[in-house]
Write a protein that binds this DNA or RNA. Structure first.
Lengths: 352, 352
DNA sequence: CTTTTTATGAGGTACGTGCCTCATTTTGCT
DNA sequence: AGCAAAATGAGGCACGTACCTCATAAAAAG
């Protein structure tokens, strides 16, 4: 049997009450006594029984994901992972909800955030474009006692500890490297398509992309970023325009998580395999594009992992606990046809 | 507050005792009553409080990883993840140990397995080369009440549900695809190095590798697999011999998890970048090889994830629970310089 | 209808920890 | 030394579930 607080009390030569005071950082214990207890903990290998502690505290964690309203496939995927995780963690007293926020107006987002209060929600995972209003609201929210982590797209001057997502500069660099290698020294231009270049993540990806391309692939010239603004017909227009005006486009980097419009636009003008194409995030559309050879590789972050990592972070924050950094680093996945997860998992891609 | 068994009893119009009987599948309840309780569960959204249940049962899970004795870097990594996971899960009543088995003799492995009994260990994760003796021992162990999952290298005629690891055929195919694309249509031969071809995983990797190469890259000819048998000087000899006898080797696929010897052998005869090289598993050696451009990409399975997935599986088995298949699929990771996890995480690579 | 069998109810104890109160001891201070 | 303040001990209740016993009610069998 594992040692309990009772054993610990005996080993430390103190009473249960004192053990309790030490374990829960309550005041009124001499340093000497604290030390004695801690030594006893080491000695007998005491580990607090989390189940019992949670039960005793009858603690609930109420977390909420604040996601953009737009109906992009990646966001839908994320939503599914959220409710999946909710179901999975309900038995441990963790409730996970999600709320949509329109992304247009930073003030609106800030107002929405400030409506939240610690007696209704213990922590949020926020996915919102970078803006001073949002950042300030997040800080104020923390001060009120609602934990905040930033999901996927971060805010300025935010600590690494608050961020759950991939290193976007590295992701852009990865894209450039893959294009550079796949293109096999051919001369030509690379089209870069994004939803918007106002977001921090897009800028970082572009930065990493350019860096690698400039440094190692003088044969490739990256065109200025095209912005679709999430509009299918606009996407169609600007992509086709670019192809028309640049006969020597030999690769494309589709930077934003909504790859549908750019892919569709490319699809109607080029044959699969004609261009080297890299897209982001695994969705039904990008998956089938990969299988059709419309795209050569996908750079992905795992939505299930994003959700679980956010929850672990929020929970650790609520308990004022340290976390295992190494477990929370979100990896930049490279997916090609061969290492794609088999079909049965298509809908529930969340391996981790 | 979430509903408790008490609320459930009230909602179902039965007593606590009956609720308990239904929840824990105890006999002596009419079908009609069972149905009523189950309907009440649905209606009020009852979810059993796992913390309380575990506490009440004062249940412990004792799991053991059975690993090969050989000291390869990947195995060391695995061992570290195991003790890390042990520390992390101790609070939840899960004890994880590991035991080394010499791999030479299947009979010895089988005997070691059969020594285990359900009153000392609840489940094992077994990593052992394929053999009828081992397979039979595993089956008998299960019958005795010790849960078994197969780690990394599976056994013949084993269900998918019992396996934790990557799809090795797909991994080999991935390697071939990367080599094929990176080589840019050049003509030449591909060296394939393995520790041994007696293991199921090596055979499967080779199979996937050949399939893709044959189908899509007629410019590449794969040489017969070289077997190092884990011997540094032998590795040196056969690799150099092969290079000498085949002037047109332009790529290498290092198939086994111990990449040190083959890499060292290659290193002393070729310049970084001269060959396209793909290796398996992220270790200190392969990491630095990637950074030095000694290798072009690493195909990896995440050791931390392997361990956690095994534990989740074993635990679910002990509780006779269903698992989320999608969460347990181990991904085949492709690592290049750009998407490598930063240095700080080198020692504790286990993102997930 | 009675008897036997089967279902259900009532109630208790246990699990390990958190959190509270109140009494008692020890410490530091003058 | 005497006193206030601080530290510690003793004990109890709570959390939600598991698992037990014993009594009683309902159903099935005769």
């Amino acid at each position: 049997m594992r040692p309990t607080t009772k054993d610990l009390a005996k080993a430390a030569g103190v009473s249960l009450a004192t053990v309790d005071r030490v374990l829960n950082n309550r005041p009124g214990v001499r340093k000497k006594t604290v030390k004695a207890v801690n030594e006893a903990i080491e000695k007998i290998g005491f580990v607090r029984n989390l189940s019992a502690a949670n039960l005793a505290k009858s603690k609930r964690y109420r977390f909420r994901f604040m996601l953009p309203r737009r109906g992009d496939l990646f966001i839908s995927e994320l939503r599914e992972r959220i409710s999946e995780t909710d179901r999975g963690l309900a038995a441990e007293g963790i409730e996970i909800s999600h709320q949509e926020i329109s992304q247009a107006d930073p003030h609106l987002i800030a107002r929405t955030l400030l409506k939240l209060s610690p007696d209704k929600v213990d922590g949020i995972a926020l996915m919102a474009p970078e803006s001073p209003q949002v950042r300030d609201a997040a800080i104020r929210l923390q001060e009120k006692g609602v934990q905040v982590v930033h999901l996927i797209s971060g805010q300025l001057e935010m600590s690494d500890m608050d961020f759950v997502g991939i290193d976007n500069r590295a992701a852009g660099a990865t894209a450039a490297r893959l294009i550079g290698r796949f293109i096999c020294g051919q001369q030509g231009k690379v089209m870069v398509v994004s939803e918007t270049m106002n977001a921090r993540d897009s800028l970082e990806r572009r930065h990493g992309f350019d860096q690698v391309l400039r440094q190692d692939y003088p044969n490739l010239i990256a065109l200025p970023s095209l912005e679709t603004h999430g509009d299918q017909s606009r996407a169609q227009e600007i992509v086709l325009n670019t192809l028309r005006n640049n006969q020597d486009v030999i690769a494309a980097y589709i930077m934003s998580s909504e790859a549908r419009s750019p892919l569709n636009a490319l699809h109607c003008r080029t044959d699969p395999g004609e261009l080297v194409v890299i897209a982001h995030e695994l969705t039904e559309r990008t998956r089938s594009a990969l299988l059709n050879k419309e795209v050569d590789a996908i750079i992905a972050q795992n939505p299930g992992h994003l959700v679980r990592s956010s929850v672990r972070l929020l929970r650790a924050r609520c308990d004022n606990r340290e976390i295992m950094q190494s477990q929370e680093q979100i990896r930049i996945e490279i997916l090609i046809q061969e290492n794609l997860i088999p079909d049965g998992f298509a809908a529930s891609y969340s391996a981790q």
